[in-house]
Design a protein around this nucleic acid. Structure first.
Lengths: 173, 173
DNA sequence: CGATATTTGATATGGTCCATAACAATTATC
DNA sequence: GATAATTGTTATGGACCATATCAAATATCG
């Protein structure tokens, strides 16, 4: 799946569908049974991921950062001086698709491509001062408005357990 | 993100990138630090979801069913006699996008559209005999080859806890 | 050294999924 | 009975993903 750009309109709520479900009375077609679907790993994973990305975009509305862009800034900050191929492949982004993404970040003066002196084919990536500042603000927003919501919902211990299990799936499944 | 259709070529491994990382010696650019990324809910969720969908497609290769198609068959089986709007919106699929999906399933004789006698605008959805048979085989494949893998990886208790937390996120985040 | 192969960033292109607008047929509403 | 709403559908555009290909630069190896 993918991130919807417009973050504001959820348009179609997964469960509870088709009718506004007012009060009582009225013809009211009864709700559909999800059945085994609610136990399917892929189904619930996807739904959760969509909700999380949606919330992320809302939290980042003031900074106009998508999850993918945020991950690039984070990785470049943590690993300054790496080239496009290294950053992209670490994030699972194919090099051709990374070009437009960098064009965007560079045009907003958040990061910069610098020709490497060792290997004049490659572009070294670094965050600009503005990029560092924006990333700092983004981190705070994510921590206070996004990740904090998980604690409210699951509790600290469960949140950590969840992240751990997801990481294990991502790495070993 | 989305499901890659070709299921076989992972092409870009997320972590451990850019170099085959043979033994030792050689210039060997050291691995990048993921840093805070590995603690980001959205990042790890997305990565896990991709891996799970990838594995799902491999398990279903013999039946040629995508996660989305599987969910449609499951829902139609559980709720026979519903129309396209009801099934689609329950799954979070927009009606226009559901048309081609049904065209596909119907052309493979897995499900059928039946003009409703009550409301001649709507199409009632049902599984064909072949659809029921295929779905039965799909369920077994998913249970034995897909979901079972979660137990091997996390254990029964953790698996149930994970599904529960993801469902909670999907519904309440 | 020099020919060949490889790597890097980039472009072009096609596929899939997602979202909106609009339409004809049918039904609901008043 | 005129108007509004609903259903399935088509058309269309955007975002994301994947492959092939290219020029420039570098690496490899005879």
């Amino acid at each position: 799946m993918t991130v919807s750009k417009t973050a504001e309109k959820s348009s179609e709520k997964p469960a509870d569908a088709a009718k506004g479900r007012k009060d009582a009375s009225e013809p009211q077609a009864e709700a559909l049974q999800l059945g085994e679907l609610s136990e399917q790993l892929g189904y619930v994973l996807k739904r959760a991921q969509l909700k999380v990305f949606e919330n992320f975009l809302r939290c980042m509305a003031s900074l106009q950062l998508t999850p993918a862009q945020f991950s690039v800034l984070l990785l470049v900050e943590k690993n300054p001086g790496r080239n496009q191929t290294e950053i992209a492949s670490t994030l699972g982004i194919l090099r051709p698709n990374f070009v437009a993404m960098l064009d965007n970040l560079e045009s907003r003066d958040l990061c910069a491509r610098i020709r490497s002196t060792n290997d004049r084919r490659s572009h070294i990536l670094v965050l600009t001062d503005k990029g560092k500042a924006v990333l700092a603000r983004a981190k705070k927003l994510v921590a206070t408005k996004h990740e904090a919501r998980l604690n409210d919902l699951l509790g600290q211990a469960n949140r950590e357990a969840l992240i751990g299990m997801l990481a294990k799936i991502a790495n070993e499944f």
